[in-house]
Amino acid sequence: MPTTKPETAMQYLLMIYHAEQQWADLPEAKRNAMYGEYAGFMKAIQESGHFVSGDALQPSHTATMVRVKDGKVSRTDGPFAEAREQLGGYYLIKAKDLDEATSIAAKIPSVAHGIGCVEVRPILQY
């Protein structure tokens, strides 16, 4: 991957969405192979200087929604279970422009295998 000059770089949040069931239904060998590819991907974007941070998330049924109304905190189970695809992980990257960011997004292993999609959002700069 091309290296990027940090002083001119933008930051983008790559949010990885997929149907959790589809991921869970993968044969174990395939899933393990995918974990290996993720490790390789992570190493590649660290070495190229694009990586800022990134993690996989626990399944969406472990999530809690917090709202405050009239000073009172409510905590509920959520997000809505009807959503077809769930946020499964993210990377925060540096890239010189949107084209570089989207070309990195397309190399995220699950997406590269046709599972789910990535939302690429530029970070607001003040």
């Binding site: 933008m10 010189k96 422009d97 949107l98 084209d99 690429v120 530029p122």
Partner: peptide, 10 residues
């Protein structure tokens, strides 16, 4: 400008 779509020939 916000997402920095490049201004160049691909």
């Amino acid at each position: 400008s916000g997402a920095r779509i490049p201004y160049e020939v691909p």
